[in-house]
Amino acid sequence: MIRLSNICKSFNDQVVLDQLNLTVEPEKITVIIGQSGCGKSVLLKHMIALIRPDSGQVIVDGEDITSLDEKGLNQTRKKFGMLFQDAALFDSMTVGDNVAFPLREHTRLSEKDIEEVVFEKLKLVGLTESFHKMPSELSGGMRKRVGLARAIALDPKIILFDEPTTGLDPIMKDAIDGLIMKTQELTQATCVVISHDIDSAFKIANKLAMLSDGRIVESGTPEEFQASKNPVVVNFIKGHAETNNQN
């Protein structure tokens, strides 16, 4: 389980997260929604300690990771897999080497065994034929699928997705949504998805949380969200820009 408690984060004078509280339930898909630039990615990066809060606690499996040293953090991060917004594949490596990277770093598997695991993960995302390709030869959607294969290479307990469907066409969006659900079902991992795509969010989420003005203003099941009377949530779901600004 991940619990964020009273998280505050500012960059220079700009307050991004303000006394934020959030609990992510284990073995479920939690989707955090909010407007572009509201701090969703900053929030996600707090969960894996890529960003440290100015104050507050990030509890992962009962341990406050904000007070961990480098060694402790490395141990905690091994529980995580993360799909970055633009996949963050290593340009200098092939697709196969990208997926094999965490296996080579953190396991003692032989090259043959590593290759088997890589094929298995690439098969899951439907990209076995791209094993020897370089990331520059892939489309945006393919890059994200490879990023997902790399994120799940070590079978992590927690998978973080930073805007997995942004910039993709509707068919590819649907494919990525399907992959997230399939991955969660197969691995029973705790999944946290950052998104501003409301259709995708309702489709894949077991639980939704809405971030606005540095706080979680609403959280609940998709059904609860659809019935919400909170004007911020209602305007976001309906896509009412002007009314949203007035709030």
Binding site: K45, I48, L50, E70, L73, N74, Q75, R77, K78, F80, M82, F84, Q85, D86, A88, L89, F90, D91, F101, P102, E105, H106
Partner: peptide, 18 residues
């Protein structure tokens, strides 16, 4: 620098590689 702006350095941290 390219690795920094394309989050590849963050990816290394996320994979417990300094």
């Amino acid at each position: 620098g390219t690795m920094r702006v394309t989050e590849q350095i963050d990816a290394l941290y996320a994979m417990s590689v300094n």
